[in-house]
Amino acid sequence: METYVVVRAHGLRTHLLKPEDYEKLLGTANVKEFIYVLSDTDYRNVVEQLPEEVEASDFRKALFKKYMERVNILEKNSPDGLRQFLRNYALGRFEVVNIKHVLRAKAGGSSISVHELFPVKLNVVKWNEPLGLERLDDVVRYLARRGYPTLDIAFSIYRRNRLLDVLECALEADYYDSLHRLIEKLKLRELEDIVREEADIRWLYWIIDLKARRANLSEVKSILDKYGGKASEELWSHALKYELEDFIFFLSRFRRYRRIIPQLRRGLRARDYLLVEDLLRKRLYDMAVHYLLYEPVSLTYVLSFLLLCEAEMCNLMILFSGKKARLHAHELRPFIFLPLV
């Protein structure tokens, strides 16, 4: 059955957008033309349902719908254990995004409606419940009972340093921790590496963010430990000891980061965090492509495929926003990840 899922993922991969599709999309003059060109691809069924005047939220939901279609195909033919894992892996990250939206709104005393969230039902089934709570600490307590226990620790740190980043870092920590525990429980050993590598990239992102904020890293150690990656085990002491730029130097210990280190350091020196995040994001997708090429018959292929689906969502959202902002193709191209597979 597991092999069947891999085969399905191979089949679905042929539906992903190709570089020539991206070129066509980049060449469109406006949003209308962009949607028209997109309707000639695998996105036809979701794009056709979009209203005449497409808003970013409508487009984002359409992309999510397509993503879920692909996840459902993979899920449908998976054995129970794998199905549970795929569900947690694919939906969990969107649930985390939803919760981040809720936490930000509650921290700023703003309102947010359920329509602005991804329609995800995983740990939080009724989104109206956390949205109905007025205070941030009530929301945190509510979420801590529903699969995000680290939020409790993070909230006590947030009370001291008022850094919302700690709460968001804790959310992701719980997400990766739950994936590690599922891998352990379901004995899906072959997925361990890819999840740990992905967790590492996110760990690195938070280290950069928290160090840039001059946050006390030792205070958040228990949260960061939950990412459970290889880099987080080996580089923790360096993260504590060295300044950000010097710390990045130690990443060269991991071959997969060596290529981006000079650019990372340049980005950090210029405080160009958009470049830093873009490098990390592309590193994650490069890793997915690597697994796609070198692990064609393993379950890792399925997760790599899902990562590339996410990259595609991200690319299309960038193109859509770029078209809305009337940016030219040459301005958009550097931010697009083109999987040359």
């Binding site: 970013a56 930000r104 709104a105 005393g109 703003s110 926003s321 301005e331």
Partner: peptide
């Protein structure tokens, strides 16, 4: 021009989400 880049990469929904946290 830098904000346009950020708008493009993050998207309007994310930007409005971040702005909600700010009083």
């Amino acid at each position: 021009s830098r904000m346009k880049e950020a708008y493009m990469v993050r998207g309007p929904d994310e930007i409005s989400s971040y702005s909600r946290a700010v009083s």
